[in-house]
């Protein structure tokens, strides 16, 4: 009987301990205490898309997850795509809220730059992704080396066209350094391939309707143009979604950014090749560098380039398998 007493006492003690432990753990989980002195990062994305900026956002959130005890990210998107006024408003709001860092796409618009300078003057880190602002004071840029990406696109264009083509370039919007750099890199190949002739440059305003409008406009106004180059993602996405091979007015179409639509275009034969950017890494590296700056007072480098690649119809399956 004495042994039995001891056993019962032990069982009672274990039950009590387990109850307290369970209760404590549960309370802890409900409490969900966050770390003090979190790095408040605000991200102002130009628009909500499905493939490019969403990948950058994904990378940012992955970075936040990896530094969850240090970083708190808030994503802000203007109601209208690439609306400078709304983005400026958002930046000013974050500035007034005295956040620790703002991640935005670069834009040469004066008000936009002024808003960023205002934030920087308050000690807020400014991290530009995808697009740099060359005139902006020392800052961090994380994104593609757009000039080199333009050169890559040119080289591949030369391969596709055999070094002879009449080219129309469809860009996003004036004032974006990244697009300008891509165009510059693309144009640089004309020295190497003189038979590649750039006929015109148009802007789609990051808008599918405008893309289609420009598509028709270019063909209508310059029927001699046989090659269309979209140096910004919206152009490729729209064409990939809308056209089949036999419907294309152009012999060759080369686009930027790998998305579901551009891949579809590539499979359909409407698109001949895609220059891909590592958008996920753009977002992730931005967060990583912000943390580093908070810890060490400096970035790894003020300009961090992410990888670019070329995807043609021959390599699409390989790329899909890789993904």
């Amino acid at each position: 009987m004495e042994n039995m007493n001891k056993k019962i006492q032990c069982i009672a003690l274990v039950i009590m301990c387990l109850s307290i432990l369970y209760f404590g753990v549960h309370m802890e989980s409900v409490e969900k205490m966050k770390e003090k002195n979190m790095i408040r990062v605000s991200v102002v994305l130009p628009h909500s898309d499905d493939g490019y900026w969403s990948n950058i956002e994904k990378g940012i959130l992955e970075g936040e997850a990896d530094y969850s005890d240090r970083v708190d990210v808030q994503i802000h998107i203007p109601q209208l795509n690439y609306n400078i006024d709304q983005m400026v408003e958002l930046i000013k709001r974050q500035t007034a809220a005295k956040v620790d860092a703002i991640i935005v796409q670069g834009n040469e618009n004066k008000e936009y730059v002024d808003a960023l300078i205002g934030a920087r003057n308050q000690g807020i880190q400014i991290v530009l992704v995808d697009t740099d602002i060359l005139i902006f004071p020392p800052h961090l840029y994380v994104g593609t080396n757009n000039y080199e990406a333009g050169v890559l696109m040119g080289e591949k264009l030369a391969e596709i066209t055999g070094g002879e083509a009449k080219v129309a370039v469809l860009s996003g919007e004036a004032g974006y350094a990244n697009l300008q750099e891509r165009c510059q890199g693309l144009a640089a190949i004309s020295e190497k391939y003189p038979l590649i002739e750039f006929i015109r440059l148009d802007y789609d305003n990051y808008d599918g309707l405008t893309v289609m409008n420009k598509y028709n406009e270019i063909h209508g106004e310059n029927p001699e143009i046989d090659t269309l180059v979209c140096v910004e993602g919206t152009g490729g996405q729209t064409l990939g979604a809308v056209f089949k091979e036999e419907q294309s007015e152009y012999q060759n179409i080369v686009v930027f950014d790998i998305t579901e639509e551009t891949q579809k275009g590539l499979k359909n034969g409407i698109v001949d090749g895609i220059v891909s950017q590592d958008t996920n890494q753009m977002g992730y590296q931005a967060i990583k560098e912000i943390v580093k700056y908070m810890d060490e007072g400096k970035y790894s480098n003020n300009c961090i380039y992410t990888k670019t690649g070329w995807i043609a119809s021959e390599t699409i399956e390989e790329e899909e398998a890789y993904e």
């Binding site: 205490m33 966050k34 003090k36 408040r40 007034a96 809220a97 956040v99």
Partner: peptide
Amino acid sequence: QKKNYTREVIDTVCTMETY
């Protein structure tokens, strides 16, 4: 907020400070 952190609250009170 040091004990019970909420980003929106911190942003709001910081904005109030700015104001």
